[in-house]
Design a protein around this nucleic acid. Structure first.
Length: 408
RNA sequence: GGCCCGUUCGUCUAGUCGGCCUAGGACGCCAGGUUUUCAUCCUGGAAAUCAGGGGUUCGAAUCCCCUACGGGCUACCA
């Protein structure tokens, strides 16, 4: 109302169908129809009819919208905290609908009123809002309200090709887009979330913060505390950033290494219980977690990569076995098993036993270590071998060696 | 199409007043090492003629202009 009285807004009686037709028509001539300061004088609104007629129409209950009257021939300017000075000619801004025909305000009006009432000082939003910022500036001006400071953040782009990141990309390439999993109530579509994919909240925030911003020094892994200390809008970059799923995993790994082992072990234990596996004592669980975390990106990977601690391998990795087994593998394992039987079971002694076996029998070290690893783990990767054997115990170790010998 | 914004290694970026930039770091990649594996760790390496072209200047990734390319917006959505 205030805007209409001050002449900065007007009633528009054009129907959606009429405008639609105009748009189609313009399109067929390869032009664009825009409801703005140049076209409004030829359209059906309170600017083109007398105030008497306007009054009549309003009283007769005709459908109408209220549009902003963008001034002619001026340049709207404002300073964006990230982009600097931005200016747009008023002819390029259309007379946006402020109130819809159902009497509800549109986002543009509601946004301004709401922010003003809440005494918002900084409007920080995505770059896709930049084109409508001049409109908002105008609204603040017409309402004689103090405009907030604007900052338009760069967009997150798809990892491959161009364009802004959408939830489809995540599904397509197998990484989450939303922080939390959510179900679209309208379509029933389910989108995966970072939390559900095993990302730590801190790692997620850290990764996201570094996309389009940096502290100005070479730090990358930072706590929320450190980031908020270092943060300033001035250091936000202007160009869009492609999201990198690989680096996202790296960030999570960093937090795997920094988090207290107890925390990881607790979650790890929960996962194991779900699989119905029997756990070791608390201290040993901590040791195992410590060994496993070094080569894992997520807690959820721990049960699979450390399964051998809790259960003898039921099958051996074909490729690894082929690569590391020789005609002598069985004989070596048998001899070594005999040596282990008389070895006092400490990491150091195990290491010594293996290396002296290698040197005294001129056995190729790589072949021996790997076949032994395959026997206890099932494949040729994992933590330091002596540490594994020590935790497993002499009896279990020998049992697993026998099993592999039988399978060679 | 129109308008607005952007453009430094494959990717994220440093580069704040032009000289210290033969452009730095990180992820990834490659090689070597940790006298066993590896997804860890260490060391090293390849990788951007700073989108292209003009200008300003003693000197430009840094300032200006043009072009190209990319993105965003273009609803009685937000």
């Amino acid at each position: 109302m205030q805007l209409i009285d001050s002449g900065n807004a007007y009633y528009a009686f054009d129907s959606a169908e009429e405008l639609d037709a105009l748009r189609k028509d313009a399109e067929s001539r390869k032009e664009t129809f825009q409801y703005d300061c140049r076209s409004r004088n030829g359209l059906n609104n309170s600017l083109t009819i007398s105030s008497e007629q306007t009054k009549q129409r309003l009283e007769s209950g005709a459908h109408y919208t209220i549009r902003l009257k963008v001034p002619e021939n001026t340049t709207i300017e404002f300073d964006d905290l990230i982009r600097g000075h931005v200016s747009v000619r008023s002819e390029n801004i259309d007379d946006k609908v402020l109130f819809k025909s159902d009497g509800m305000p549109t986002y543009h009006l509601a946004n301004i009123v709401d922010d003003h009432l809440m005494e918002i000082t900084h409007v920080i939003r995505g770059e896709e809002w930049l084109p409508s910022a001049p409109l908002h500036v105008l609204l603040y001006r017409f309402l004689a309200w103090q405009a907030p400071l604007f900052a338009h953040l760069p967009l997150l782009l798809k990892p491959d090709g161009n364009g802004k990141l959408s939830k489809r990309d995540g599904d397509r390439m197998g990484f989450p887009v939303f922080p939390l999993e959510w179900n679209d109530p309208k379509t029933g579509e389910k989108s995966s979330g970072y939390r559900e994919s095993g990302y730590f909240a801190e790692a997620f925030i850290n990764m996201l913060a570094l996309l389009g911003w940096n502290p100005g020094d070479e730090r990358e892994v930072m706590t929320v505390e450190e980031m908020s200390q270092a943060f300033s809008l001035e250091r936000v970059s202007k160009s869009g950033a492609k999201f990198d799923p690989v680096k996202a995993r790296w960030f999570n790994h960093q937090y795997m290494m920094h988090k207290p082992v107890e925390e990881l072990a607790a979650e790890f234990e929960n996962e194991l219980k779900k699989h119905g596996l029997e756990l070791f004592d608390h201290q040993t669980m901590l040791t195992i977690t410590q060994m496993l975390r070094e080569r894992a990106d997520f807690i959820k990977d721990l049960p699979a990569s450390g399964a051998f601690f809790f259960k003898a391998p039921t099958e051996y990795n074909e490729v690894d076995l082929k690569k590391h087994s020789t005609a002598d593998s069985g004989t070596w394992l048998a001899s070594l098993s005999a040596i282990f039987a008389t070895t006092e079971w400490t990491q150091e002694n195990i290491d010594t036993a293996i290396s002296s076996f290698i040197s005294s029998n001129s056995v190729p070290a790589g072949k021996l270590y790997n076949i032994l690893r395959i026997a206890v783990v099932g494949n040729s990767s994992g933590p330091h071998l002596a540490d594994i054997l020590f935790l497993l115990g002499a009896a279990e170790t020998s049992k697993r060696m026998d099993s592999l010998i039988a399978n060679l």
